[in-house]
Each structure stands twice: as C-alpha cells, then as structure tokens.
Amino acid sequence: MTDKKRQLPVWQESILLVLTAMVMAVIVKTFFLQAFYIPSESMEPTMLVDDKILVQKVSYWGGDVQRGDIVVFDDPGGWLGAEDSRHATNGLQKVLEKVGLFPTGGHLIKRVIGVGGDTVACCTDGKLTVNGVKLDEPYLLDESATKDRTFEVKVRDGYLWVMGDNRGNSSDSRAHLGDPGGGQVSEKAVVGKAWFRVWPLNRAGFIHKPAAFKAINDK
C-alpha cells in the first residue's frame, strides 16, 4: 500500500488560498485591470462623480494611446485638487486598494484629444480642430465652454493633449499651458483606458470611443 499524501490542516489551506488570491489580484491590478472612482465633475456627462469604473491596461502594453480614449493617468505635477486625491480611509479599504479591489484615488481622468505629432487648436467656428479637422463633440456637457481659451499647440512625440468633457469645469491641458510641460501628459504617466462602468448599476456598461475622431484617425 502506498502512503496517502499528507494534507495541510484546514487553517493552513485557508491561509494559502487567501494569499494566492491576493497575489493573483495584485497581478491583475498591475497588468490587466484596476478599479477607479470618478472624483470630480470634469468628465460630465460621460462620467459622473463617484462612478466606479474598471480601467484596462492591455490596450496600452504597446503604448498605443488613441484620440478619443478616456484615460486615467498619474499627476504630471500640480494637476490634482483635493477632491481628486481621496484614498481609502480604513485598514480593510487600504488592503483592498493595494490589490485593486477598492477603487483607487490620486489620479486624473480625461479624454485624449491629441497624440504625438498632432496640432490641436481652439477654435474654428467654436469647435476644436485637430490637424485642421473640426471636431463634432456630442459627448460634451456644454460645447460653448470649449472656446473660453484660445490656443494652438503641437503635441510632442510620446505625449498627449487631454481635456475633460465638462469643458467649463475641467482643469485639463488648457489650464496648464504655462507649466513646464506645456499642459502635455507623457504617455508613460497613463495607467490605462476607461473600459467598463461597474457602478451605478443602472448605467453599468462598456465605455466606447466616440466617432468624433474617426476622420482624423483615417487621415
């Protein structure tokens, strides 16, 4: 007769299962998906305050950020306000935040308007232009708020020009034109692309890129 395999006690198996689950969660957070919440009104009406979203990272493994994507990114320096910097407040939340199971704060979320090599200008007939093509942006809360500041910028290679959908209440690239970085965000600062809204349930679903940028992408 062969000896039976020695089994771990139940309590040891339970600890092993929990540790394995946490390691897997950290791997998923690092390379695939991460939970975030919407901290401010800057992306209304597309994203509302306290919406909970999943950000996927797979699309950007090759650094292929595209116009029209809604991206979560690290603070380029001095962009974060107090409402954007909220983090988990108790021990359990902090543990869950570390493994990606509690929505993370301390980041920004905006829509990519221009990528490296693009010329973004405001405004022609009240509309943004990218490489001379006027954008029709039906996702904006108030399109007239776009033209509150005129500019023309050439986006550097490896950088992005980002703006909120709530143009009248968004501290985005326009507000940081005078910064050392000229309001441009390095692609290296991008955490991932907004992919799926998980909360509230009545608005849960995939987050799609609008058709507004198709003509530019096809040039």
Rank of each mutant, 00 (worst) to 15 (best):
G81P: 03
G81V: 07
Q93N: 07
Q93A: 10
L92M: 14
N90K: 13
R67M: 09
A82K: 02
G78V: 15
V95A: 12
H87W: 01
G68M: 11
G81T: 13
D84W: 01
G63A: 12
G78T: 14
G78Y: 13
G77L: 12
E83H: 06
R67Q: 14
V95W: 06
A82C: 00
T89I: 14
G63C: 12
Q93R: 02
R67H: 10
T89R: 15
V72Q: 03
G77F: 10
R86P: 01
V65S: 11
K94G: 01
D74R: 15
V71R: 00
D75P: 09
V95Y: 05
T89Y: 09
Q93T: 01
E83K: 09
L92R: 04
K94R: 13
S85Y: 02
D75K: 08
K94W: 00
G91W: 10
H87Y: 04
G78I: 12
G77R: 12
N90E: 14
L80G: 07
L80M: 04
L92H: 02
D74N: 14
G68Y: 12
G68D: 09
H87S: 14
D69Y: 06
D69V: 09
N90L: 13
I70C: 07
D69Q: 10
R86Y: 05
W79Y: 14
N90A: 12
L96T: 02
V65P: 11
Q66R: 15
R86F: 05
D84K: 01
S85G: 04
G81Q: 12
A82M: 06
L80D: 04
N90C: 14
E83Y: 03
W79N: 05
D64K: 15
T89W: 07
L92Q: 05
A82V: 08
H87R: 14
Q93I: 00
G77H: 09
G81C: 04
G81W: 00
G68W: 10
G78S: 11
D74K: 15
D75V: 03
G77V: 06
L80E: 06
H87N: 15
K94Y: 00
G77Y: 05
V72K: 03
T89G: 06
R67F: 07
D74L: 10
L80N: 08
G63P: 14
R67C: 04
G68E: 10
Q93F: 01
G81R: 08
V65M: 11
G91Q: 08
D75N: 12
F73M: 03
D74I: 07
D84I: 00
S85I: 02
P76G: 04
Q66P: 13
G63D: 13
T89D: 15
Q66V: 14
V71W: 01
R86I: 04
R67D: 05
G91I: 11
N90G: 14
R67N: 08
A88M: 10
G68P: 08
L80R: 07
G63I: 14
D69F: 06
R67Y: 04
P76T: 06
Q93H: 05
F73W: 02
G81D: 03
A88E: 11
V71N: 00
D69G: 05
T89F: 05
G78N: 11
F73P: 04
E83S: 13
Q93L: 05
V71I: 15
W79S: 10
E83G: 01
D69C: 06
I70V: 15
F73K: 02
T89M: 11
V65T: 15
A88R: 13
F73G: 01
L92D: 01
Q66Y: 08
L96N: 03
